[in-house]
Write a protein that binds this DNA or RNA. Structure first.
Length: 108
DNA sequence: ATAATGACGTCGG
DNA sequence: TCCGACGCCATTA
């Protein structure tokens, strides 16, 4: 059989990424690089790929870039969650960004 | 097999 | 702080 038939079965890596994302506590975030490093496999881009494909089923706003900037186009959506969860924000000019120094979660 | 792409990261200017 | 260039790694053309 081909990979077109294996519906419902996600790659181990994708499953790990999604599982870890769901484990991130409210008010905390992890960067793509941190997720890859924590899992010990793949890389930031591979984590990004997984989130792009299956991120809709998990709290995707808790996984952000290393510069603390949420997804372009989804900023408003993400900010709403941050405000609701009390995620440490840092106002840079007119655009609020996540304060990674305080919000970064190391898996504790 | 080579080139281009992407929800990225780090460094230098 | 902002911008560009290079590196990384799997997928796609």
């Amino acid at each position: 059989m081909t990979e077109s038939t294996n519906t419902g079965a996600l790659p181990p890596f994708a499953e790990s990424v999604l599982d870890l994302t769901e484990r991130i506590p409210a008010g905390r975030v992890m960067t793509y690089g941190d997720v890859a490093e924590y899992l010990g496999q793949g890389g930031p881009r591979q984590v990004g790929r997984v989130m792009a494909l299956y991120g809709g089923a998990v709290p995707w706003w808790r996984v952000i870039r290393a510069d603390g900037r949420p997804l372009p186009g989804h900023e408003h959506r993400a900010l709403g969650h941050y405000r609701e969860e009390g995620t440490p924000l840092r106002s840079v000019g007119d655009e609020p960004r996540v304060d990674l120094r305080r919000a970064r979660w190391d898996g504790q």
